[in-house]
Design a protein around this nucleic acid. Structure first.
Lengths: 341, 341
DNA sequence: TAAAGATACGCAAACGTTTTCGTGTTCATA
DNA sequence: TATGAACACGAAAACGTTTGCGTATCTTTA
């Protein structure tokens, strides 16, 4: 790569000082019209642009936001990034994305790389492994330094920082109520392991709805899926029992789509024999047959909110108390819960 | 945010020079054991880490790769980013993602921001608008400066730089042949506008297969979709004709899924009445009913390749001629082309 | 005891910028 | 003709780091 042109080189070319060049390019009245003209023409011709590293160092500001997420090949996370990027861009920030791949170690290494001056703040959704082992010490340093930080979706309640979450309890509550309204009596829940916060929150919403409706809670209707094992086999057990449930609430789109597929294979009619709802912001629900009713998650909005909180924190326009923003979710009713009469 | 600790502050604390501190922290034998110990303990206690901006400026290297893509909420692009990130990380690079949102203007602004010293190289897939208007002048400056650049998927043939593409012709060819083998005679093609390179390449593969099989090419079986208008209405026209095709090749997953949905609504049986194949690397194809046969695109691999080419270019380990890597695609046969006898 | 060598550190340049403050020249005014 | 302002530019510090080279002090050796 050819070396880029610098103020120093331009200065040398005209036998003037670096400051003269700098001022000339900024149209300073301190520099004579003549000198200004020459310098600007030359700089223009050689396509001069200030080196942003030098500027960042001088201004002690990078205008870059770091984002650490568990994975990117996941519709929800990519909508969040989209939201972050849109808002950040409006405010003149760029986005640096790092993946933890659900690994604690990688998350920590991302932390160290990003907090060494290359970004002005951090937006994080925590890796599964980190949540499982509950080791949060990599947060200590940056929190005690008041480094701008926003957690989203998978958060840690104890940490002192801004947070954005989906109204998981409310979403699951609405979904479960909807199932009850269309006549379901025995609603199975397909959820994650307990340490995934969103899974356990959605379970709370589910339980709450059952209680207020006076339905009995059957522990054996709650299935905790292990994401590292075969999903089909695990979900098959929900349906292939002597007394199958008459409705299913799944905490994500994939679980729901698999359940639907299996139910159809077993000859069940949906929603007549069994109604199904998933959580999602993905595309699958639209194209299954029947299409899947689902709790819509508004990842874009979540990203926007997270970026807004962060930038306010960076620019010191935030209130001193940390905020917890809850993004409400709504039910998109499709055919998997819609009787055709 | 609290100000970070620097060499200067440590130096002041012990009344030594900055260089002494720097050397001590690097375990230089030039510094006495005693001084080294004190300084390292202090630095450790205050969690000193070298400011990466300063290092980047000094070393004239950021170890950051810039990526500009049309959108991120798109399974294909997110797999590519995933591939880029994995490989880049292994090699000690970080990834900065920018979105053009299919807009020429935003693409240009991303260019200017990223080529000002904040990244060592650029991986780009071109915005729709840019392809439509064929204005490539924002590439001129960086190409004549030999700035490391890799184009992928949506490329520009004339530009002198490394490129990675899917074997679009071959993929479409294989898919079309497969349709012919299962007995299709009148194969419709649902493709994009001509200026989208991947669309026109896939069309070439389609035409080639028809020719070599001796089937007649019917221009009115080729439908060019406009992405900014209602997809359903446009695709409906493919099926709702007096003499519908007996097979459909769609150049992406969404088109295929919509075609499938419409065909079912019209009472057609798939694949008996009409067989369907899509291009994809998404999740939808798996969960439609019947599941969709599709050309698998290996976005991860594409990203890895792009990152590899770029990093070789950055580190000057690449051959001087520019390379064009073709990622071969393969057919994943599912039920939309599988007669059940 | 003088010369040579080892030890332990500091200086300063370099990366590329911005900006405050100074300074030499020119011109007009009293 | 001396004084002051206006004009046009330069010096230097600052951001934080690394590193080659210089140097003062101490120790060893002949």
């Amino acid at each position: 790569m050819k070396p880029r042109i610098t103020l120093k080189k331009i200065a040398k070319e005209f036998g003037v000082s670096i400051s003269t060049v700098s001022k000339a390019l900024k149209d300073s009245h301190e520099i004579s019209e003549e000198t200004r003209g020459k310098i600007k023409a030359f700089a223009d011709y050689y396509n001069y642009k200030p080196n942003s590293l030098a500027l960042q160092l001088r201004n002690q500001k990078t205008s870059v936001i770091g984002v650490i997420i568990p994975e990117i090949v996941h519709h929800f996370f990519s909508t969040v990034i989209n939201g972050i990027e849109q808002y950040a861009n409006e405010k003149g920030y760029n986005v640096m994305v790092c993946l933890s791949n659900e690994s604690y170690e990688k998350e920590v290494s991302n932390f160290t790389v990003l907090t060494n001056g290359s970004v002005d703040g951090l937006i994080v959704s925590i890796a599964r492994e980190t949540q499982e082992n509950k080791v949060y010490k990599h947060f200590d340093a940056i929190i005690s330094d008041d480094f701008p930080l926003v957690l989203f979706d998978r958060i840690i309640d104890e940490l002192k920082c801004d947070k954005v979450i989906i109204d998981d309890i409310g979403g699951a509550h609405k979904a479960t109520n909807h199932l009850i309204e269309i006549g379901a009596k025995r609603i199975a829940l397909i959820t994650t392991q307990d340490y995934i916060t969103v899974g356990s929150l959605r379970k709370q919403g589910y339980l709450k709805a059952l209680k207020t409706s006076g339905l009995t809670i059957e522990e054996n209707l709650i299935y905790k899926i292990n994401d590292t094992q075969d999903l089909y086999k695990q979900i098959e057990k929900v349906i292939q029992v002597k007394n199958p449930p008459d409705a299913i609430l799944a905490v994500n789109e994939i679980y729901a789509a698999i359940a639907l597929k299996i139910a159809k294979e077993k000859g069940l009619s949906i929603p007549k024999d069994i109604a199904i709802i998933g959580f999602t912001s993905g595309l699958i629900s639209e194209f299954t047959d029947p299409s899947l009713t689902s709790v819509v998650q508004h990842g874009d909005l979540m990203g926007k909110q997270a970026a807004e909180l962060l930038i306010n924190r960076i620019e010191n326009t935030a209130p001193s108390e940390y905020q917890k923003v809850v993004i409400s979710s709504n039910l998109k009713i499709r055919k998997s819960t819609l009787s055709e009469n």
